[in-house]
Design a protein around this nucleic acid. Structure first.
Lengths: 152, 152
DNA sequence: CTGTGACTTGAAGTGCACTTGAACTCAAGG
DNA sequence: CCTTGAGTTCAAGTGCACTTCAAGTCACAG
């Protein structure tokens, strides 16, 4: 029971496929020591990093932004609880915003269903002023830019 | 002021790029008549369809599912208000679920920040039982399957 | 020492939702 | 009639987050 994990072990414990872990390493999100035979060995702290990565993805943050956040850690490679708190808190706003927009969408949808204006003309639903645009996770999650109606 | 729209007009009114409209047509999401010169002319009803498509995407529904939903319309090609209501309502559950999961994530994140257990070991945050998995919009929005911790 | 399963690499492939480019035609105003 | 901007097609490219593949190496139990 050494305190270094193989890629297989890290994969099982983190729930992330080995291929994804290698991918994260290529992107500079995690790091690994190597054995004499060139195999990866992960410090346990990497488990925390992987957890942070997955949680951040759930919030809708891209890997590139996560990388930037992790790189912002002062000096030391192993994030302290304070680092963790700061990073987690920094996504909080994003999360709030996403929840807010989805909730607004739901309310608008309800309003539309209720009011019968389902042709979506002058309905708030079709009102582009702020509609989950930008900041989508993954590739293009939400919408590049929403609709701007006029007539119909 | 004919009641048929060119692709440029539909693009401006819907906020969707012409290339995207052609793409939607290829996928069978919208349809267009053609002029003698082979140019697309859209009935105004297509504006509603495009609006529905964009809204559905915001809810996190893939184009393929949207296509299936639109195909489910009984007979007539122009969706009635009732159709609209039914379709909109059918996404409602997805929307609720997404909001629920994001809210749970936020609460967990708060809990983590508050309780200081930021190493994310036995924290709910890292609890995979239900974590925005599946059903992501776009490509792979949320997560294929989340983490399953154990030690650290 | 050998077999087996876990590991290594780089390159290529996947899925979604589009966008871009090249080469061309159409529609409408002057 | 001619120019110009808007339209057409098909093929290929983009971005993200990975996965898959082929060909080979490593670690360890027996």
């Amino acid at each position: 029971m050494t305190d270094l994990l193989t890629i297989g072990e890290l994969s099982v414990r983190s729930g992330v496929a080995p291929s994804a872990l290698r991918y994260y390493e290529r992107l500079g999100l995690i790091r690994a020591d190597r054995t004499g035979g060139n195999q990866r060995r992960y410090a346990r702290a990497e488990l925390r990093r992987v957890a942070f990565i997955r949680i951040s993805q759930q919030v809708g943050v891209s890997l590139d932004e996560i990388r930037a956040a992790l790189e912002s850690l002062p000096g030391g490679r192993t994030p302290s609880p304070q680092d963790w708190e700061r990073l987690s808190a920094s996504w909080r706003g994003r999360l709030d915003e996403r929840i807010r927009l989805l909730t607004k969408l739901r309310d608008d949808l309800d309003g539309c269903i209720g009011c019968g204006c389902l042709s979506l003309q002058r309905c708030t639903l079709n009102n582009p002023e702020d509609a989950l645009a930008g900041e989508g996770p993954g590739a293009r999650l939400m919408l590049p830019r929403p609709a701007s109606p006029e007539d119909e």
